[in-house]
Computed example of a mutant assay.
Amino acid sequence: MTERLNSAQPYALGLFRIVVGLVFALHGAASIFGILGGAAGTNGGTLDSGTWPGWYAAVIQVVAGTLVTLGLGTRAAAFLASGSMAYAYFKVHAPIGLGPSENGGEPAALFSWAFLLLVFTGSGAFGLDRLFARRAATRSRPAAEKTPVAA
């Protein structure tokens, strides 16, 4: 049983990356474009362009979330996303109260830790990072290794 679970790990990680990245990107898109209920506290509206820190956070959410979803530059995008959510937790939520359930910071805390995990694990399966790395490895092999030798 453990061997089966271990062999499925890259696929589970890839699906985790896709879901977390997509939810993050959609959260930012809601704030910028007013879709899916719009920005929190705006009755379905959008954040004013350039307002600190919400609008910038939403841009980071859309860009980093999309990159993580695609598995493109996963570690760097996840690092940026994790940091932005840590900032949101400590600057916006923590002053309200100590615990995440008390201060409304549960999503920020969970996103921060989920993205930090992706910084260390990488994209897993289904990521463009893996595809590009595989292509680069194939191109860098000497010609003798690329052509099969008849025995």
Score class of each variant (00 low, 15 high):
Leu13Gln: 12
Ala78Asn: 11
Leu47Glu: 10
Thr147Phe: 04
Phe90Glu: 05
Glu106Lys: 02
Met1Asp: 13
Ile35Gly: 12
Phe33Ser: 10
Ser7Met: 08
Ile60Ser: 07
Ala81Gln: 07
Ala76His: 00
Ala8Val: 03
Gly71Thr: 01
Glu102Tyr: 02
Leu15Ser: 04
Ala94Thr: 00
Leu47Gln: 10
Trp52His: 07
Ser123Cys: 05
Thr74His: 03
Thr51Ala: 09
Phe132Asp: 01
Pro100Val: 08
Tyr11Trp: 13
Ala125Cys: 00
Tyr11Gly: 05
Val59Asn: 06
Arg17Val: 13
Arg17Gln: 13
Asn43Arg: 08
Met1Lys: 05
Thr66Ala: 15
Ala78Ile: 02
Leu80Pro: 00
Gly122His: 01
Ala136Met: 06
Glu106Pro: 02
Leu47Val: 04
Ala88His: 12
Thr147Trp: 04
Arg139Cys: 01
Asn43Ser: 15
Val149Gln: 15
Ala137Met: 03
Pro95Trp: 11
Val62Asp: 03
Ser123Asp: 09
Ala30Pro: 10
Pro142Leu: 07
Thr147Ala: 12
Gly65Asp: 07
Gly28Cys: 08
Val149His: 12
Pro107Ile: 03
Phe115Ser: 11
Ile35Lys: 07
Thr74Asn: 10
Phe126Pro: 07
Ala150Leu: 11
Val149Arg: 13
Thr74Phe: 00
Ser49Gln: 13
Ala40Tyr: 13
Leu47Lys: 06
Gly44Cys: 13
Gly83Phe: 09
Leu128His: 01
